[in-house]
């Protein structure tokens, strides 16, 4: 029993280390490639277009709206594709939808509100861009912090006998670190922390997770992207002895089209919750089992 636990822990730590290691190597590689970059008057300008928008599939990115700009988000997730033609790969299955509005208070700070169909989540969030990568890589990465508060607005009978308002609250916070390698390729690494005030029986209240996302342009307005999320199911951090309710990792991949006023993303993903804390803590769809679904995000700027 004991060795099993140690083995498992080692496995989890090795995943963590390999992801972090990969990112560090890529970062160093990217910086070294850009050493001979121009030392012209643009050297200290912030880079543009690390990501097309503040949202990439299931994760936030370091991008924020411009000062005084509104962003309307429409996020849609169809059902799992597992039933094939019976429900046309999930299109006729139960779906989840989120609509949200973001506003750029300054170039670097945004706030927003959104609501998600599943669990009637009302969500308030904010993002602050601490650092922006420069053309000369004198600042090699863009860094942003993101936080949200979601209120489960279902009927209070859902929360059991000792109902308190705080049972409805859940939080998600994330540090985002991104590097734009060249005009075509960007990567982002993001450790996150999720907390629920009240969870289902034997589901942990806290969860640390890592996310890695990347985008490659294939034409001036179209790009391919991927995103991977790994919740850290580490025994030392475990609240309950059982690992039965451990959340599963997520892989998303798809295409993105960006125009002056719109961004469209169509992708496959394991996550169906849309709201990040819901995804991180409760995902039961396995990458290995092919539990994928089709999702799309539409963003309108005005």
């Amino acid at each position: 029993m004991r060795t099993e636990y140690i083995n498992k822990k080692a496995k989890n730590i090795s995943i963590f280390e390999s992801i972090t290691g990969l990112f560090v190597i890529l970062l160093i590689l990217g910086s070294s490639l850009n050493v001979n970059a121009q030392t012209d008057e643009f050297a200290n300008e912030p880079v543009s277009g690390t990501f097309e928008s503040g949202l990439l599939a299931e994760t936030q990115t370091v991008a924020t709206p411009f000062a005084g700009e509104f962003e309307l988000h429409i996020q849609h997730r169809f059902g799992l594709i597992e039933n094939g033609l019976e429900d046309v790969f999930g299109i006729y299955a139960t779906s989840n939808i989120r609509m949200g509005l973001n506003y750029g208070i300054t170039e670097k700070f945004m706030i927003g509100y959104g609501y998600t169909k599943e669990f009637k989540l009302q969500e308030f969030h904010g993002k602050y861009r601490v650092l922006t990568q420069t053309e000369s890589n004198s600042i090699p990465v863009s860094v942003a912090v993101y936080g949200n508060l979601a209120i489960n607005s279902q009927d209070k009978s859902v929360f059991g006998n000792d109902y308190k308002f705080s049972d409805r609250l859940s939080y998600f916070s994330q540090l985002l670190v991104a590097h734009k390698f060249n005009d075509n390729f960007s990567l982002q690494f993001g450790p996150s922390f999720t907390h629920f005030n009240k969870t289902d029986t034997l589901v942990e209240h806290d969860k640390v997770a890592l996310s890695l996302a990347g985008r490659a342009k294939v034409s001036p307005s179209m790009s391919l992207f991927f995103e991977y999320d790994q919740p850290l199911n580490i025994d030392d951090m475990r609240e309950f002895a059982s690992d039965e309710n451990d959340p599963e990792a997520n892989l998303s991949f798809g295409i993105e089209i960006g125009t002056s006023t719109h961004v469209f993303q169509v992708f496959m993903s394991n996550y169906e919750g849309i709201t990040p804390q819901r995804n991180i803590l409760y995902n039961k769809n396995k990458i290995g089992d092919g539990d994928f679904l089709v999702g799309f995000n539409i963003l309108v700027r005005f």
Binding site: F42, E45, P46, S260
Partner: peptide, 8 residues
Amino acid sequence: KKIPSKKD
């Protein structure tokens, strides 16, 4: 605003 980078 939409093309904030001077280089762009």
